[in-house]
Simulated scan of single mutants.
Amino acid sequence: MTTVLRYAAFTTDPSGGNKAGVVLDATELTDDRMLAVAAELGYSETAFLTPLGGRDYRVRYFAPTMEVPFCGHATIAAAVAVAEQTGPGDLVFETKAGTVPVAVDEELRATLTSVEPHVQEVDQADLQEALAALDWSAADLDQSLPPRFAYAGARHLVLATATRERLADLSYDFDRLATFMTAHDLITLQLVWRESAAVFHVRDPFPVGGVVEDPATGAAAAAFGAYLRELGQAGPDARLTLHQGEDLGSPGLLHVELRSGDPRVRVSGAAVRLTD
C-alpha cells in the first residue's frame, strides 16, 4: 500500500491554499501506479519522491490525468514534508524540468528556486482562441501587461485583466481550453489582475490536468515573475505578493523574489499537513 501524505500549500490554514499529495519514497512505484494514486487522491498534483542520497531527491509530479514536468505547490508541500522528518535546511529536487533547489527555514516555510525561465510573444490567432475559450474579449485585457507565454519549469499563458470583477467572473469552455492548451504545451493559464506594482491577484485554469482551477500555482508564479522582469515591470531585486484561491474560498499567499544577476525566480510559501 502506498502511503500518501496530504498537505495544503501556500497557506498555514488547512482550509486554504492548494492541496497536494506527497509520497516520500516512490522507489518501487511504476508510472501507471503513480498516475493511479494521483487520480484517486484527486488533487491538482501529487509529488513522488525517490531518495538519491543525502538531501537530494528525484521528484515526479502527477495530476489526475497526466504527468507534469514541474509543480510549485507540490514542491513546497514535499519540501515541508521532508523537513518535518529530517529537519529544516537545503534540499535538491531533480525534476523533469531540471534541478530545483529548495530551502526550508526553521518555521517550515519553503523557498524553491526555479530553472532558468524564458518568455515568448503570443500571436494574434492564438490569443483570440484563448480569449474565446475563456469567454473573454480583448476589451477585458490590461493593455499595460500584454499576453505572453512564460516558462519557469512549466509553460503558462499569462493574460492580465483590467478589472478585479473580470477575474472573479470565471466560467470557461473546459474542453475547448484544454484542446488549446494541449496544442501549446501549457500547464495552466495565469490570469492576473494588478492591485499595485508589487501585489497581484491570480487564477489558474488547469483543464489539461483534469482540474477546473488550481487554487495556488507556484510554477505559474515563477513564470509570472520572469514575465514581469522581461517586460520591465519589475525591478532587478523585486519582491512580489500573489493572492490566489480567494475566488474559490481557499485563499493562498505566494511570494515571488527576483534577484539581480540571477535569471532564476524564487517562490516561497508555507505548507500545513492535513489530518482529516
Rank of each mutant, 00 (worst) to 15 (best):
L189W: 00
S171C: 07
E129Y: 01
P146D: 14
L186M: 08
V192M: 13
Q143K: 03
Q124A: 13
L191G: 00
S137F: 04
R166Q: 12
F149P: 01
L141F: 01
A139W: 03
P147W: 14
G153T: 07
D135K: 07
L157C: 10
L131R: 09
Y172N: 09
Y151R: 03
D173I: 05
L191H: 02
A178V: 03
H156L: 00
I187Y: 05
A139T: 09
A125I: 14
Q190P: 02
T182S: 09
S144R: 12
A154M: 11
A162Y: 09
V158I: 15
F174R: 12
D123C: 03
R155T: 12
Q128V: 07
D185K: 13
W193K: 04
S144I: 09
L134V: 12
T179A: 12
A152C: 10
Q128H: 13
D142T: 02
T163D: 10
Q143G: 05
W136Q: 00
A125K: 14
V158M: 13
A160S: 15
T182Y: 08
D185L: 10
D175N: 02
L141Q: 07
A154Y: 07
L167P: 07
W193S: 05
A133M: 01
S137L: 12
P147T: 08
F149W: 09
W136V: 10
L145C: 01
M181H: 11
M181D: 14
W193D: 03
T182H: 15
L131K: 05
E129V: 14
T161F: 08
F180P: 02
L189A: 04
R176D: 05
L167V: 08
F149V: 13
A133H: 00
A160W: 06
A150D: 04
Q190E: 13
L167E: 05
W193Q: 02
A130H: 04
P146A: 08
R176T: 13
D173L: 10
A150Y: 02
Q143I: 01
P147Y: 06
E129N: 11
S144K: 06
F149R: 07
D185A: 15
V192D: 03
A125M: 11
A160I: 13
D142H: 06
D169A: 12
Y151N: 08
T182A: 13
A154N: 14
L170W: 04
Q128I: 01
A183S: 09
A138E: 15
V158N: 03
D126A: 13
R164T: 10
Q143Y: 03
L170K: 14
H184P: 00
D140M: 08
M181G: 12
P147Q: 08
A132G: 09
L189M: 10
D175Y: 03
I187A: 10
A133V: 02
A152N: 07
D173C: 12
L186W: 11
T161G: 11
R166C: 07
D173V: 09
L170T: 14
W193L: 00
L131C: 05
Q128P: 02
Q143A: 10
L134C: 09
L157Y: 04
A138H: 13
Q190W: 12
W136Y: 15
E129S: 11
D185Q: 15
D173G: 06
E129G: 06
W136G: 01
L134H: 07
F174T: 06
L131S: 06
R148Q: 15
Q124I: 09
